[in-house]
Design a protein around this nucleic acid. Sequence first.
RNA 1: AGACCUAUGGUGUAAUUGGCAACACAGCUGGUUUUGGUCCAGUCGUUCUAGGUUCGAGUCCUAGUAGGUCUACCA
Length: 556
Amino acid sequence: MSTPPAPTNFIEEIIVEDLESGKHGGRIHTRFPPEPNGYLHIGHAKAITISFEMAKKYGGRTNLRMDDTNPTTEETHYVDMIKNDIKWLGYEWEDEVLYTSDYFPQLYAFAQDLIRKGYAYVDDSTAEEIAEQKGDIGVPGTNSPYRDRSPEENLALFEGMKNGDFPDGSKVLRAKIDMAHPNLLLRDPVLYRIKHEAHHRTGDEWCIYPLYDFAHGQSDSIEKITHSLCSLEFRHHRDLYNWLIEKLEIFPSRQIEFARMNVDYFITSKRRLKLLVDQGVVTGWDDPRLGTLAGMRRKGYPAEAIRNFCVDTGVAKRDNQQEFDLLEFKVREILNRDAHRYMAVLDPVKLVIENYPQGQVETLTIDNNPGDETAGTHEMPFSRELLVEREDFSKEPQGRKYYRLAPGKDVRLKGGYIVHCLGHEEDADGKVTQINCTYYPDSKSGEDTSGVKAKGTLHWVSAEHAVDIEVRQYDKLFTDPQPMNHEDKDFMEFINPDSLVTITAKGEPALGEISEGGQHFQFLRKGYYVSDPDSKPGHPVFNLTVGLKSSWKGKK
RNA sequence: AGACCUAUGGUGUAAUUGGCAACACAGCUGGUUUUGGUCCAGUCGUUCUAGGUUCGAGUCCUAGUAGGUCUACCA
């Protein structure tokens, strides 16, 4: 066997150790176990990345398993969304999607085994009574009065539970461990509860359902998962995970916990996400302002960028808070490489080239990506009347490092000519209505013999040929990077009122052809944009993915 | 308060397992550029505290401090 790749974090160190010691015959098998009751978000992306990449790196496999043990909250709809999101992220699971619910018969048999061995009992206590029996942190609990029922009686009662002889909440199956254990989870945890409720896959077949602690580890074991990776809050569950594996004498999967990733401006709490959707703060679970996979996809974040972000932020056991800047860097990194450059003027003002022939239209060739020769070119019309960005003109520029339009300045129109700014016209309110220029006929891009030097280059569109495009200017959803970390204030108080500003902009003609979502562009000098699924023929819609980085401190 | 986990620049992650604390992002300077983008160069700044072991400690030991997790018939 060849030597395994060098580990880059503590989990990989464990994997390498296991590989070298020949544990499980050198087999590596991980799993991602979402509960199908909500949408996947950036935190899940981290978990997915860790489990899938780890297996990939060490020649292992990864299962996708729906952890569907609670019929009350789970729906098939979510299963479909989850599968779609994971595929989009770029991962393929082993074989078919697996379901914890497929193991219900096996889990039931495990429970019977536990009962026979004297490690579990049926308890008639109410939920409140069980809570009381738990004791408290640092205070031992008390035994349930039903704790010492015989295995025979327990077996019969448990079967009765399964057969629907008892109403919801009247009985539970509990592990018999230690009511004084310092880990509260080992104070006779509930293993099975009665729920006369239809399950999204097993229908009415069952009226008892296992709880997480009696389903998750057992499912890992059934699938012979070697390394079960989960987040830190499950640390205390590991003691129970191991106890059950030991008592059941089943395949010893190993649980390893890592710190989950937090990202500035993103909320990952299912409850809060739902609140934002229900209250109409955002338009849905796929709103581009949310940290859901569906939202980030709609915002134009490439899957590759999200994967890189998750991988490059590493794996450790301390709480972490990732800066939004890094995520945006990862997004720009991919988009700069891949996105084709087009021109769109967000806040247009007319620019007239006085010495350019009336009615003349030239077709100019624009590089799709100056950093990638293979990306090709596209054409756009140039004419006497153009539209340029209002902020690219100044009546009285401040400072000598001003490269844009101002009286007396020379500026290159990207892919076209250099123009000389003469002045402007304005309305009664002092608002600029037109910029007047002349152009240097021998300064055409690619064949410039004018000798004129223009420090600035601007984007533009031909007024006559430009098309209306709907542009959704997204900004961060919150005004605070960690809106839920304020003890005195609710996170809803930090909603950014300007997180979405919708405008009608002027795009170059080619943008008018866009009629479907998911196409990435760079609007020259403005930012990266993606066409939105709301786009219709004749009505293209673009979402701001991320702005271009700017080192210009003159404005904004 | 019991138990468990964690502590390295502004953020995050490394450090050949006891041997010159590095990489990325962010910030700041400058250069290139038909995007004030990209790219390139430079720069800023770090081992929670106190003891101890050792020729030598971010790493090992002790004590403290700080943060996190745990008392659902949720996962």
